[in-house]
């Protein structure tokens, strides 16, 4: 891994240079609501630097809330189908947290391992991830429990860690190296050193190894009911989650012209599994919440060998009832 340093005062210059080079830069922006969200920005002035975690994850860059699969038009000669995959621009995601970046590992594995997904591939190829280590954490953060930490390099192309006057830069991938070359003069070569003292302290709430074993038999646990009685069945957790990938496919327009879209869906919705006949394999919220949690901690491990929870804590912060995923996992694996 290549290490570089940059003066923290030079960060804006580096950032703006990326925009000048024609890239779309997505960065955290403070919104009127007081929450921070990823948004395309025009200069570093718009970027928020004071946030523990963004409201939603950066997954929308590779898996947007609405993606046009294709558009169609009927004429005398038949139906013409077109898609605009070629219009995807070079994109940089700035300031995502290490947990979010590591979620991209899971997303890549999930979308590409079997039946590779054309749209995800096209977007992922054009995306560079510049993550920033966490100096602060809150009660909802639990990355250390899922074997990550506030300075994990996994998934990022570049990881920045603020160390006083200067910023310590780990160039993890070729894409990352290429990104700093747009402003090479701002950087000085550096040496590998410990980031520990500059990172947030996040206490581990459970041992992943134990959970992995115990969750195998957790399906019938009576605790699921207690864990999910408060669940309203909305999609706030799934939509904010960096690793939730479920989607719906919908046609919009008329039978003569329109488009086929895929849009985010959530397994917590009652309609998610309902058959047209009215039969519903998962009839109540207990079963639906169990599905979501079991998927994160059991099913994705069995299918892909990855725990698909990165401990970002968004589902806890965004839950209208403040249900706590790690408390639930603890109780069902007791």
């Amino acid at each position: 891994m290549e290490i570089k340093n940059i003066k923290s005062t030079n960060i804006p210059a580096f950032f703006d240079q990326m925009i000048k080079s024609g890239k779309v830069v997505i960065a955290p922006v403070l919104k009127k609501s007081g929450k921070v969200f990823f948004e395309a920005v025009q200069s570093y002035d718009q970027v928020s630097t004071d946030y523990i975690q963004t409201g939603f994850s950066a997954k929308s860059v590779v898996f947007p809330k609405v993606e046009e699969l294709f558009s169609f038009k009927k004429d005398d000669e038949g139906i013409e189908i077109t898609n605009n995959l070629h219009t995807i621009p070079e994109t940089v995601v700035w300031g995502l947290r290490p947990c979010d970046a590591s979620a991209f590992n899971y997303l890549t594995e999930f979308f590409l391992k079997e039946n590779p997904d054309t749209y995800f591939t096209a977007r992922k190829e054009k995306t560079t991830l510049i993550a920033i280590s966490c100096a602060k954490a809150d009660n909802a953060c639990f990355c250390t429990s899922v074997e990550l930490n506030p300075g994990s390099t996994s998934g990022s192309d570049i990881l920045l860690t603020a160390m006083g006057e200067s910023v310590y830069i780990e160039l993890i991938t070729e894409k990352g190296k290429a990104a700093v070359e747009t402003a090479a003069s701002l950087f000085t070569p550096g040496e590998e050193k410990s980031k520990e003292e500059f990172l947030a302290k996040v206490t581990s709430v459970f041992s992943m190894d134990e959970v992995k074993v115990r969750i195998k038999t957790a399906y019938d646990s009576a605790e699921w009911k207690h864990a999910s009685m408060g669940c309203f069945g909305c999609g706030a957790c799934a939509f904010a989650c960096p690793t939730c990938t479920c989607f719906d496919i919908q046609d919009e327009g008329t039978q003569d012209s329109g488009k086929r879209l895929r849009c985010w869906d959530a397994c917590g919705f009652g309609l998610f599994t309902k058959h047209t006949s009215g039969h519903n394999p998962r009839t109540n919220q207990t079963e639906r919440r169990r599905q979501r949690l079991m998927h994160k901690f059991k099913y994705s491990v069995e299918n892909l060998g990855i725990v698909s929870c990165v401990g970002c804590g968004r589902c806890i912060r965004n839950c209208p009832a403040h249900l706590n995923i790690f408390e639930n996992i603890l109780s069902v694996t007791k």
Partner: peptide, 11 residues
Amino acid sequence: EAIHKLPVPCF
């Protein structure tokens, strides 16, 4: 009170 110090509904 949940583990993260916020009040959550209980039954």
